[in-house]
Amino acid sequence: MTSVLRSLRRRLLTPNVSETKLATRGFHVKNDASRELLETVGESFLTGFAYAVEARTPVEAEERLEQVPLQFRGFAYEGAGMGFGILDAMPFGGRKVADFLAGRGDDHIYMVYVGVGWAMARLPRFLWSRMYAPDPLLKWLALDGYGFHQAYFRTDQYVHGQYQESRFPWPAEGPAWYANRALDQGIGRAMWFVGGTDPDLVASMIEKFPEPRRADLYAGAGLAASYACGAEEEELHRLLEHAGPYRSQLFQGSVFAAEARLRAGLVVPHTHVATRVFCGTTPEQASRISLDNRPDQPIQGDVPAYEVWRRRIADQFVSLGGVSQ
């Protein structure tokens, strides 16, 4: 494919940057700093998407992705995961996600899997069989990405209307009951954006959901608050206080965020603040909690290994005595 055709493909496939503006989305604006941060996150995601759909190979995209500022580079890799996922679903698309994960994308594997979920949200369901998410442990991150997308772009329905999918058809091998749990984790992540990083507003939105859904929503919010940033230390303490009985889920989400940033070499000062507040520890120690509790073999039974992993991490919050206020 010539460079002209690749450039045309980029223009045709890449969403308009205006879609990332808080005013366009109708999201809460806490202050100018948080608005700028969240909009930069969205722009970085679209930058990564564009790099992927225009590149001749994943390696070519990686060279450009590595130039994205450290704080936002993970979001660019997430966008690239979406871009390569969409290309894989197109005729003669190949296995670009697989090639991406065989290179530098592996350092950002969590974000790439989430990006695959974004691709699913933009593609008809009959193409989902072409999605590359082979790891039985991490495949649920694709549904996290799908849930984020739906809450971000269909906010009235998924956030304010507390909509929940019925009989979600992916992954085909199930277990089917867990799909909505994974989707809610992504919806909770998106609510950090919908609420403009305002912990009081985010918590109030979560509390409007049925009680059985709140644990996963708080886990997602904790991950976003730790990874995306946008709040001062005192505000993070307020979110922790709001979480109440779901503090262990907030802890779990923050642990996942620390592991994702540390694995990719993207730890920023806010990462230290968030893990100190939510986990009572450093990003390095939080990441170790994630790795030490990761299942090293398939889990038998109806509970996915991914959920076993999350529960083990949440249990560490209890065994460590929780986070003091």
Rank of each mutant, 00 (worst) to 15 (best):
P91W: 02
A121P: 07
D135P: 13
L250Q: 03
M111A: 15
K30H: 05
A52N: 02
A89W: 00
G188A: 04
E284C: 01
L70S: 13
Q297A: 15
A102Q: 14
G230P: 05
R10M: 13
K96M: 13
C279I: 03
C279A: 15
R311E: 15
M90G: 09
L137T: 11
E54Y: 00
Q162Y: 10
F126Y: 13
A61Y: 02
A23R: 14
D198I: 03
S34H: 00
A76E: 04
G105H: 08
R10E: 15
W140I: 06
V323C: 14
L262T: 07
G322S: 05
R25W: 00
L101S: 06
T155W: 09
E233F: 00
L201E: 08
E36D: 14
L127H: 03
V41G: 04
R247G: 09
A50H: 00
V112N: 08
G83Y: 08
A176Y: 03
G301N: 06
A286Y: 03
R276E: 15
S290P: 03
Q71H: 12
N293H: 14
S7Q: 14
Y246C: 07
P283T: 04
Q316K: 11
E235R: 02
P298Y: 05
L37V: 01
V268Y: 11
Y218D: 11
P298E: 12
V268P: 03
A221M: 07
G81F: 10
K30M: 06
V116A: 09
D200R: 08
F317C: 01
G26Q: 03
R213F: 01
G186F: 01
F72W: 13
F168T: 01
Q164D: 12
A133G: 12
G74M: 06
L201K: 08
S3R: 13
L127D: 02
M191K: 01
M191E: 07
D200S: 13
Q162T: 12
S18C: 04
E173C: 01
P58E: 06
L65V: 08
F92A: 14
T24E: 13
T271D: 15
D296W: 00
V273S: 09
R6H: 03
Y146P: 11
A133H: 07
Q67T: 14
H237C: 09
Y51P: 07
P15E: 05
E54Q: 14
V303Q: 12
R25D: 04
L291H: 09
I289W: 15
H28K: 10
Q162W: 04
S248M: 02
L101K: 04
D144S: 07
H108R: 07
G115P: 11
T155K: 12
G265D: 11
G322R: 02
G195K: 03
F317H: 14
G195A: 15
E63K: 12
A80M: 09
D144K: 07
Q150K: 15
S7K: 13
R73N: 09
P212C: 08
E54W: 00
A61I: 05
A231Y: 01
Y163Q: 14
L320S: 06
